[in-house]
Nucleic acid binder design. Sequence first.
RNA 1: GGUCUCAUGGCCGAGCGGUUAGGCACCGGUCUGCAAAACCGUCUACAGCAGUUCGAAUCUGCUUGAGACCUCCA
Length: 487
Amino acid sequence: MKAQQDQLVIYNSLKGEKEPFVPMVEGKVGMYVCGPTLYSEPHMGNMRTFINFDLIYRYLLHLGFRVKYVRNVTDAGHITNSAGQEVDSIGVAAKAEQLQSLEIVYKYAVKFQELQRIYNMLPPSIEPTATQHIQEQIEIIEQIIANGYAYEVNGSVYFDTRRYMQDYNYGILSGRKVDELENETRTLNAQDEKRFFADFALWKKANPDDMQVWRSPWGNGNPGWHIECTAMSTKYLGKQFDIHGGGMDLKFPHHEDEIAQSCGSFGCNPARYWMHANMLNVNGQKMSKSFGNYFLPKQILDGTTGLFEKSYTANVVRFFMMQAHYRSNLDFTQEALNASEKGYARLIEGLKTLENLPATTSTFDVAALIASFYKAMNDDFNAPILVANLFEAVKQINLVNDGNAGISAADKSELKAAMEVFVHEVLGLAPENIATETRLAPVMDLVLDLRQQARTNKDWTTSDQIRDGLAKAGIIVKDGKEGTAWS
RNA sequence: GGUCUCAUGGCCGAGCGGUUAGGCACCGGUCUGCAAAACCGUCUACAGCAGUUCGAAUCUGCUUGAGACCUCCA
């Protein structure tokens, strides 16, 4: 695996190009990913980012890296809404549901955990929350002030962007230049307090109706939106670590400000590789709460999105996502989902067929095929290419199955092992639940036996009655050369 | 308005100067009581216009269209 580790290339948003991945400590990876804000149930778009980083995490683990994967949970914070007003989203949700902030957070945290299980995401090494790290945030703010890159005004603390720009490059990640940023003349509460429009809050003085308030050297208040990630990534991964990830939409201002905070307090960019996952689209537009074009991850499983005629399993949804690169937009359409459903079935069938293949002599290069799996993933986690290569394997498997190709016993077991690893462990497609099948099998044997009797007697009415009845129950009967199968 | 990204066959999507990516649909075939499913085969596209090159989906310029960010967002 060491050899494969050395082949890994990652697209670094910081430089805008792919580069060989060289971890700070050989064989180890520190990775931080911005998690959800728990004021509502994460929608499918949110999930795509987490599923993509789950893929990345899984492949790093497969390569043998010891990965420390930290993904935070935002359960506090003073933030601004689309109208430019300061709103504590969690507080708003809490008031709307007549609950305390912590109840809201916990409620959605439980849902998020459930979704992670359903979509077969590996739990991160640590899932720290903002409210558990108020002290750490305060300490970093103090350090930034001490270094001269922040100032206090009336119980709030702001990052001094102009001062910072004398020593560092603000905009290094997003490519933004401050003098090109439009100086919006919005009437923000904080506008008067800021020395410069591009300054951002590190600490906000409490409002009278705030549901959550913390004590600080500057009085009661709330931490700014960006500082929690700096505090938690530093605490668990150090002042500098290997990979920082998140959604594309966090690039600016969130990640830009994280860099500023780290440079402003410790003098270094927190991460060596910045990775950004692209958005999930519905009808060509980003899925988001504000557009209202979102649906929940569970709705697609029970067919209640209102967008699609039928439901899809979590594996199909995940497979669908794996067929697009993490840096590309992905359009969620029924036709595409149906295509994935069938493609997924073909892949899994191929895997089953492989097990029962007769061993002869190999007529195709199994080693090269397996190498192609690695080559795809080593090229910036190119899952779509991996999937294409897996289908190439399926094609060969079917050819062997039809007697038009051959595979040796040794190659067969190697291919089987490799495919199972890439399908289940790397792509994270959960093995189908065989427990249900095991329990149902005797019943199905009986039913299909009765149907076979009817067919032998050319009693097509009874035969089709059984077939259609099972179809209604979601069980598809397949008549083949060697008997009848079901699924 | 500023910054940036993208435009690929019926659909979804890889592609990073020279190989039919792949999946689904369609069509043809094998199988089948009929179906379905499965399997095999077929389908050779790169928004438009110029340019660079022996050669461009791939590089450059312009045009048109779409999207993201600039404000909470994964």
